[in-house]
Design a protein around this nucleic acid. Structure first.
Lengths: 169, 169
DNA sequence: TATTGTTATACTCTATAACTATA
DNA sequence: TATAGTTATAGAGTATAACAATA
């Protein structure tokens, strides 16, 4: 535990700056998914409006290697059947294909097709370009700090979240 | 090393650090909502598992003043009918009440009851406590930087997002 | 006529349960 | 018998459309 700052947690007014930050994150998240940014990125990539399927494609793209259904589900933190359906939809559009898993005949590996990989690249380029533009006017120091601290924070928080879910107490 | 960082935006591999950060944010968001953190906070506050209704209550609590339905919807970035239903549910549980809007007889103002305000406080205390604990081991400088930069970033991004949605092209 | 809110309905996304095939 | 995946169904959350009341 830390010195003063984390102790000033009265039920009424706990750490106003943190509360403000969390409130903003929540609003930004809502604005991103519900707003048009993600849809525009998908359309700019020629992927239409199927957001969950785009998520699968991006997961495969950032993984950089073929993944099994269960592995995609883990990375996206959703259950298996959901991925099954998205992969089927992507397969119909020739954006992914299934290849045998040499180690396990029950599973198959999913990989993007060339078209799928290119679409994922365009999607990510759009999205990262947009965020890059948002940060373009920032001092380089602040920009680097934010990206670095954010990565660390999400790692810490995700790890603690896993503890919470695992501990079930 | 961030001199040319914003220029290295090739379609294939654009700003790996930013991509990594965004991927993590997305995963953290999924883990938070789908995981049990929000539900635990709500249960710790005696609010049960009705997440959307909790969101309304927290919105009212952080606003610090009675809000109209439309204003709650704006702040939560959802449409009106959704708020109508959540407010009705909260009203049945005596967590909010409606008071007349002195300036407009069409609208009514929603405000938390004492029980509602206390539950919102407990909820926020739990959530902020959890995040505070996550940051507890951090150097104070990093902690402050993160909160400050995050607030600025979400403000900038939200403003740009509004432009995008408004400008419809 | 424009605006605030409500009611009723539909859609998107994800979860759970039951089943098949391979390990 | 355990595990990977699929199929079928159910649920949560939010949107759209049609309407009522007041400005």
């Amino acid at each position: 535990m830390s010195a003063e700052s984390t102790e000033a947690r009265e039920p009424g007014e706990p750490r106003p700056d943190l509360l403000a930050a969390l409130t903003r994150i929540s609003r930004l998240g809502a604005a991103m998914t519900r707003g048009r940014l993600v849809e525009r990125a998908a359309e700019a990539a020629g992927l239409g409006r199927d957001r969950p399927a785009v998520g699968v494609l991006v997961t495969l793209r950032t993984a950089g290697k073929p993944l099994r259904i269960g592995e995609i589900a883990d990375r996206m933190q959703v259950v298996g059947p959901h991925i099954t359906r998205q992969v089927q939809a992507l397969e119909k559009r020739d954006l992914v294909r299934r290849i045998p898993d040499p180690h396990d005949a029950r599973a198959r590996l999913i990989e993007p097709t060339e078209a799928g990989a290119e679409a994922a690249n365009r999607y990510l380029a759009f999205l990262l370009g947009w965020f890059g533009d948002t940060l373009a006017d920032w001092p380089a120091q602040d920009r680097d700090d934010l990206i670095r601290l954010l990565a660390r924070f999400t790692d810490d928080a995700t790890a603690r979240l896993a503890l919470l879910d695992g501990g079930e107490d």
